[in-house]
């Protein structure tokens, strides 16, 4: 193989490899890791975070505006403390509420922010106080069953019998 021909093929090979990398970088993936200088950090306490994980998206009106950076357990309040980084372009009022939502029936969980009406804005390191926890399916079902059982009880004398049956 002649020297010049080898150089040509190697050049082509390297170009194809770099093209493949660029394809992976721009067409296949997106950089969700926001640059640290362009974000500010907020935190919120939740009674139950369900299946929320680090790197889960923060959405407002369905648009991704940040990422969960850390989840810790607060031993004093017995609540989960979730901290997240938000794009500096988006400011939120101090009475913003945060809730843990699920995309679709089996989808991943994310935090939804609902802006309030306060004129003052949340600063870096601020805390969102109005929160609602993740919906836990087991709790929903048990609540539904209890309310059903109570309905049955109020309707007549069958209550003691059914309770008895349950205890057995």
């Amino acid at each position: 193989m002649k020297r010049g021909l080898i150089d040509f093929w190697v050049g082509l090979f390297v170009m194809a490899g770099v093209a493949a990398l660029l394809f992976l970088a721009f067409k296949v993936s997106s950089s969700s890791t926001l640059v640290a200088s362009d974000t500010y950090t907020l935190s919120a306490n939740f009674e139950n975070i369900g299946g929320l994980k680090a790197r889960a998206p923060i959405k407002s009106s369905g648009v991704v505006i940040g990422r969960v950076t850390g989840i810790t357990f607060d031993p004093k309040t017995y609540m989960a403390k979730v901290s997240f980084a938000i794009d500096k372009r988006y400011q939120f009022s101090r009475d913003t509420s945060a809730s843990i939502l699920t995309s679709g029936l089996l989808g991943e969980q994310y935090i939804g922010l609902e802006p309030g009406a306060d004129d003052r804005m949340l600063e870096d390191g601020g805390r969102i106080t109005i929160t609602s926890s993740a919906v836990v399916l087991e709790q929903l079902i048990s609540r539904f069953l209890f309310s059903k059982a109570q309905e049955g009880g109020s309707s007549g004398a069958s209550e003691p019998a059914s309770n008895h049956a349950l205890e057995k």
């Binding site: 067409k27 296949v28 993936s29 997106s30 969700s32 890791t33």
Partner: peptide, 19 residues
């Protein structure tokens, strides 16, 4: 197909780690 892929694959976490 492309947009869901792009939303879920992270450049630093997935692609760079693969490299």
């Amino acid at each position: 197909f492309w947009s869901q892929m792009q939303a879920s694959v992270d450049l630093r976490f997935d692609v760079i780690n693969g490299v």
